[in-house]
Each structure stands twice: as structure tokens, then as C-alpha cells.
Computed example of a mutant assay.
Amino acid sequence: MHLVYPAVLAALLFSVGLYGVLARRNAVLVLISVELMLNAVNLNLVAFDVWLEDTLRAGQSLTLFTIAVAAAEIGIGLAIVLLVYRNRAGSHIDRLRELAEPPPAALRSDPRTVHPQDTDVEQAEATA
């Protein structure tokens, strides 16, 4: 078996997954792209295991471990995405930066600093 064919296919899969991670703004599509990248690694592990004719089948063992880790990652990732979707009515990655809660006013180190949360509250009170 030639090693070039699975290696090229794995490189293409990894490239598509990398593009999906870097270019997409939807959290579900990013998770799918990460899975594509992990499958490209699995393909390389199995291809090199067959090519090296390893008696212990270490590549296939590592592939099973990677599949188990990927299943756990997708389960936790989808749970987080569902919670964000419920709370924010969307799963866009750009809006996830707004998840941090502002510190209470008593814990702020410098009372003279202006926080974006304070200006939003002041603007809302001024318009009301």
C-alpha cells in the first residue's frame, strides 16, 4: 500500500478542518471542523501503523484513544453550545466574549476607572 494516498487525504481533511476553525463563526461548525482535524490525525495514525507493520498495533490503539477523547470533547462542547444558545439565543463565537460577568463594585480596585457595564447602566437610566 502506498503511503502517499492516505497522507494526502489526511492533509486535505486537516486543511478543510483548519479553514473551518479559522473562518467560521458558528460554534457548531467549529466543533465539526475540529472533528475533521481529529479524523485526519486518526487516518494518519492508521496509515502509518499499516505501513510500518507494527505487531503491537500502536497506531490503531492510539486511534481508539483519540476517538474516545473526541467523543468526550464533542459531548462537552455541545452541552456548552446548547447552554449558550439558551441564554443568548444564538451560538456565534464573536458574542461569547460577552459572557464574563463584571466584578462587583466593592471589589473593583480603582473607582475612577470606567467599565463598559457601568456606562451601559448609566445610559439606560438616562434614557428611562
Rank of each mutant, 00 (worst) to 15 (best):
A89V: 07
V21A: 03
L31E: 02
E101Q: 13
V28G: 07
A105T: 07
R108Y: 08
S61V: 08
I80L: 13
L45E: 01
P103E: 15
R88W: 13
E73A: 13
I67H: 00
T113E: 14
L64E: 01
R95C: 12
A89N: 14
G17F: 00
G75V: 10
L43Q: 00
L96C: 11
I93S: 11
V30Q: 08
N39D: 11
G17C: 01
G59F: 00
S61E: 12
V46D: 00
A105R: 11
V21W: 03
E98C: 08
A100D: 14
N42R: 11
R25H: 14
S91A: 13
A106K: 10
R25E: 14
E35C: 04
A68M: 09
F65I: 10
L96D: 10
L43F: 01
N39T: 09
A47R: 01
V84E: 02
G77W: 00
R86P: 03
G90E: 05
S91Y: 05
L52W: 07
D110I: 00
S109K: 07
S91F: 04
T66Y: 02
S91E: 15
V30M: 13
A58T: 09
L62D: 00
H92V: 06
G20T: 06
L52Q: 10
L22Y: 12
T113M: 10
P104I: 02
G17H: 00
L18P: 07
A40E: 01
L43I: 05
L29F: 11
Y85R: 13
E35D: 11
L45Y: 01
D110N: 12
I67C: 02
R86V: 07
V81R: 01
N39I: 06
V16G: 09
L18G: 12
G90N: 06
E101K: 10
S109Y: 12
V34P: 03
L99I: 08
L64Y: 03
L83Q: 14
A68R: 02
D49F: 00
I67P: 01
L45N: 02
A105D: 09
V28H: 13
P102D: 14
R25Q: 15
R25V: 06
N44T: 12
